[in-house]
Design a binder for these strands. Structure first.
Lengths: 342, 342
DNA sequence: TTCCGCAAGTTAAACGTTTAACTAACGGGA
DNA sequence: TCCCGTTAGTTAAACGTTTAACTTGCGGAA
């Protein structure tokens, strides 16, 4: 009998060891008493045959199982992959496997990916919706599979959610810039159709209103910009030109920085820049970038532990968790040139 | 009957539609002729009941299945996650799901993760080993599951492998720098215990030898450096100081750049820098970074198509594929100061 | 009419587990 | 001696599919 883990079942082990399949199962799962002699014999047989339990069969029999499905908009964005890394860590610790699917921008695709994940009968799901209508909530609710929604909050939800406190983060940014003496700020956003982006904008506008500063202009540039965010160059110049740029996303931070360099602005001399998400490269640029650090790790971990509670059947009402961000001040922000004060 | 996809089986559908389970299966899988009337009735029932086939049961019954396991060293490294993104794309296109596990630096953990993946009886596996002894090759071979090894090549392997042509890339780097007039180069590597890193070094040394240039110094800095790669500052100065730094990894590129800035070197005025992996941030720095662009997407896609061939049972001999890298020349490399010429 | 073939459905076995229910053997207390 | 309890192990059903083999009914060719 060659070692062919894919082909050897509990039955082969039982025969080779001269016991019943139930006994092998008992040895493997440690459920019932088995004499030391038999246990040793079975374990040895398992080893020589290279037996691995078949998870499909286990799962079928047990009903419950130890997979969690994770659905993200994209695997190309380090923000999402960092969250996955965090979740995977938790999963491994708790003896779960995760199945990852990415939905892209397309919500039809999101539905079909979600169905594929659900057909695994996962113990739970962690979803990062790709828009905030989150049309699939119904599907998920109907399935009865416990789930938690991360990062992007659906409009009206009965589920557990874990997200970042966008307003607090926005306030910190605005307060920092205002503290340095900036009056005119330019906010660069991907799209206002996402609730968390809207919250970030709203937070900044609200602060400026309270502080009696002119209302910052908001520029919407979309998700894809190869050669710098469209319209940014124009928005930087002219009357009421900003003295500080706030990038609301990690990719925008990159695009804005590139655009500033290409247009010949010195950072922070001519223009201050606040970025979003705190990545290693932001520490390597000259100057290093002042940025909002989203607690990615905590986001994943908190989502995971909420999910575990749900799976354990805690009947509590849906909980909406908000995690605080921290503003890491580095070299890309400074007081505006006096000429820009006004 | 409430819509509870998790709870409704093919049997419920059959009863509700007044047909046998076999007929439902035939409708779902489209295997045999079913009259239009019955098909319509069954499809409607499936819809109202919210039936989703149970993959565990399918898999158990069919033996084969449509999962591919992907094992990577880490989910924190964008190089690996980009490969995963590429694989996931292919998988979706071909109707597969992927299960992702990360092994960390620990090879004991790698073994246990691998076993967990194998217990799913995947149709195939894609592995990025975390060292080049790749002790688990035996386990994988014994399992009979087709697999391909990506990026890091195990010492002696009978499997399909897809990797990058490290020597070609190294030659391009060295030739570029030599062409600019650099004579003394400093190579910064994570660890020489990885075959692909060794190949990169060897390629550079070989070129310099051929070109009659002094042998570049190689600095080994390990995987973790929060505050710049250890020993780098010292290696930059002194007699025979380099006029160009070659970073052999994306994280090292970051570390080196940061170190150069902190030590007050102007790039490329005082020191040229060539980086590894071509990420968006390298275009946003001032100057943008000259770097080797590894064909990440092709790496994943090529690995996937090799795997599909294996799964289809092509009995060909193991194939070792090497993909070419391209050197993207940007602003971080320039002729050395004349003082540095020697 | 008889028989054959085809179309449309059904029956039942099998996949690899887990586990409740059962059996066998053995000692010890009354 | 009889009975009971415990321990160590076995038997068999069940989980939700797929599919080979079978049944039934019908139309047409001989």
């Amino acid at each position: 009998m060659p070692r062919r883990p894919g082909k050897v079942s509990i039955r082969h082990v039982a025969e080779a060891a001269g016991v019943s399949v139930a006994t092998v199962s008992n040895v493997v799962r440690g459920r019932k008493n088995v004499s030391d002699a038999v246990r040793a014999r079975v374990e040895k047989t398992i080893d020589t045959l290279g037996y691995l339990p078949n998870r499909a069969a286990m799962q079928l029999r047990e009903g419950r199982n130890r997979i969690v499905g994770v659905l993200v908009p994209s695997l190309d964005n380090p923000f999402f992959t960092a969250i996955i890394a965090s979740i995977e860590n938790c999963a491994r610790r708790d003896g779960y496997d995760i199945i990852v699917a990415s939905a892209g921008e397309d919500s039809a695709l999101a539905s079909s990916r979600l169905k594929a994940l659900l057909s695994w009968r996962p113990a739970g799901m962690i979803v990062l919706p790709n828009d905030d209508c989150f049309a699939d909530a119904g599907l998920l609710d109907a399935s009865g599979v416990p789930y938690v929604v991360l990062d992007r909050l659906p409009g009206a939800s009965v589920a557990d959610t874990v997200a970042v406190d966008n307003e607090q983060a926005a306030t910190e940014i605005a307060a920092h810039l205002a503290g340095l003496g900036h009056r005119h700020m330019l906010v660069v956003a991907t799209t206002l159709s996402l609730a968390n982006i809207r919250e970030r904008c709203a937070g900044i506008l609200a602060y400026c209103a309270r502080a009696g500063l002119p209302e910052p202009r908001v520029l919407e540039v979309g998700h894809h910009f190869e050669d710098g965010p469209p319209g940014l160059t124009e928005a930087l110049a002219g009357a009421n030109a900003p003295s500080a740029v706030i990038a609301l996303t990690n990719s925008i931070t990159l695009g804005a920085l590139r655009c500033l360099h290409q247009s010949g602005y010195a950072v922070p001399g001519d223009m201050s820049l606040v970025g979003y998400d705190d990545y290693a490269w932001m520490r390597a640029t000259l100057p290093p970038i002042t940025a909002i650090c989203q607690p990615v790790d905590a986001l994943g971990a908190e989502g995971w532990s909420r999910l575990m509670l749900r799976i354990a059947g805690e009947g509590t009402a849906p909980l909406q968790v908000r995690l605080a961000c921290t503003l890491v001040v580095r070299g890309s922000t400074a007081p505006p040139r006096t000429g820009n004060l006004s």
